[in-house]
């Protein structure tokens, strides 16, 4: 039975491609949804998908092979050398909350627009076009 660290280091190329590839794919899919979709709710979902990709990227960059969560438990007060980077995790905590606020506000605007125009399709919301 191999432990996780040796398994990680043996397959580092695959893991790199998988993690970074997923993050880039999520960001690109979200941007595609924001730019190409016509339905307002789908655009908001695209923003959330982009958020998820950026969070994954942050946490992946902060990972250290064989590292544990940066929490000191009784009996391992000197375990700081085997811990992952705490800074990206703290920043992702902030980013998740801000992402939630942005999604909630955007959805409320969508609801208001739908009530006013009876449609959520951006092609038909053309009262500001000239």
């Amino acid at each position: 039975m191999m432990d996780f660290q040796t398994l990680f280091e043996q397959n580092i190329e695959i893991i790199t491609i998988a993690v970074y590839g997923t993050a880039i794919a999520l960001i690109v899919i979200g941007l595609y949804a924001v730019l190409m979709k016509k339905h307002l709710v789908k655009i908001v979902i695209g923003l959330s998908i982009m958020d998820a990709g950026i969070h994954l990227l942050f946490v992946a960059v902060g990972y250290i092979s064989g590292g544990t969560a940066p929490i000191f438990s009784p009996g391992s007060e000197n375990a700081a050398t085997t811990m992952v980077d705490p800074v990206p995790q703290a920043l992702v905590l902030t980013a998740i909350v801000i992402g939630f606020a942005v999604t909630a506000l955007a959805l409320s605007l969508v609801i208001r627009l739908y009530k006013h125009h009876h449609t959520a399709n951006i092609d038909q919301l053309n009262s500001l076009k000239w």
Binding site: F8, E9, A23, I24, V61, Y63, I64, S65, D85
Partner: peptide, 12 residues
């Protein structure tokens, strides 16, 4: 950009 950032490396 990301290909020059190795994953799992100790940068601390």
């Amino acid at each position: 950009t990301l290909s020059s950032i190795p994953i799992g490396k100790n940068r601390i």
